[in-house]
């Protein structure tokens, strides 16, 4: 754990990713301080281009895009992290149990996991959301959490299988520690980098999928989120009438947040898997080789 944190602190990708995430987080928290407008109220004339009064212009029904963006960040982050947590919790628990218990338990969980993996995710979510009707962001987070754990479960199971053979687990078994204790206190802490990658990957997935579902018209159009901003803009044909700000601004916000999160994910991957790391030694190596101090 300490090695992981230490590695992350010195990783450039992690730094940039963290800065982006913190900026979005601050913008979301400080939304009422940064804008005077109510995000759902009609506060200007329709489709005003960006100006001093409306920094990012207005929507077709005259809402302030900047205000919607700030308040929408709250939804995107909440759904992303909420669903991400749920996905990771379910996936990790199932993976550890299947890997550690083995036998029939493993067979059942693995079968279920493989099944979920081959049923296409988005179409399944579309059907679920369609029957639920205009799904609130909270409901979207919930169904995402319950349908998207399979990848995490599979990866966690594979890693648990190899941990199970390690001496410290065998030792704990000899002492007669109960299974749940071994799973929580012996196995889980050693999976921390996989859980981290799974968590951040799930957050990215949840943010993207929430936006996609809402864009496709399955969300609650009154909710304030980046996905509904896209949905409303698309419905208002914002692009063909030239109101690019209404559609491109949430686009860039989503891209930026996605980028920040992926940078974090790649960084954890590099720290956890030393083979993928490209450390400072490379610069030193090149310097030495160039100056004729050595060769290969």
């Amino acid at each position: 754990m300490r090695v992981l944190l230490d590695g992350l602190l010195r990783n450039r990708k992690a730094l940039v990713g963290a800065i982006i995430l913190v900026l979005v987080l601050l913008a979301a928290i400080a939304a009422p301080l940064l804008t005077q407008y109510d995000p759902s109220a009609r506060v200007g004339r329709p489709h005003q281009p960006p100006s001093w009064n409306h920094l990012m212009g207005t929507t077709r029904i005259g809402q302030d895009v900047f205000a919607r963006l700030l308040y929408g960040a709250r939804t995107s982050l909440a759904v992303g992290f909420g669903a991400g947590l749920l996905i990771t919790a379910v996936g990790t628990a199932l993976g550890i149990i299947a890997g550690y218990r083995g036998g029939k338990t493993d067979e059942v969980i693995s079968f279920l996991t493989n099944m979920v993996l081959v049923v296409p995710n988005l179409p399944l979510l579309l059907v679920l959301a369609a029957f639920i009707g205009q799904a609130s962001p909270f409901v979207i987070a919930l169904i995402l959490g319950l349908t998207s754990w399979a990848w995490g479960a599979r990866v966690t199971r594979a890693e648990t299988l190899s941990l199970k053979q390690k001496d410290f687990v065998k030792a704990a078994e000899m002492i007669g520690e109960p299974q749940w204790r071994i799973m929580t206190f012996e196995i889980f802490p050693n999976l921390i980098s996989i859980v981290g990658i799974n968590f951040i990957g799930s957050v990215i997935f949840a943010i993207i999928t929430e936006a996609t579902l809402e864009f496709l018209g399955l969300g609650d159009p009154r909710a304030i989120s980046w996905g509904t901003m896209l949905y409303n803009a698309q419905k208002a044909s914002a692009l063909s009438v030239g109101a690019w700000w209404e559609i491109l601004i949430p686009c860039f916000a989503l891209a930026l947040l996605g980028l920040g999160m992926s940078l974090l994910n790649f960084a954890i991957d590099e720290v956890a898997n030393p083979r993928l790391r490209t450390g400072n030694w490379r610069d030193r190596w090149i310097l030495l080789a160039r100056s004729g101090e050595g060769r290969l």
Partner: peptide, 21 residues
């Protein structure tokens, strides 16, 4: 990293805006 972190819906909208409109 850029390509994988940008949602398909965003990429599509940007492409259609730039090259289509």
């Amino acid at each position: 990293i850029f390509a994988t972190s940008v949602p398909a819906v965003v990429t599509s909208l940007i492409v259609v805006f730039v090259f289509g409109f």
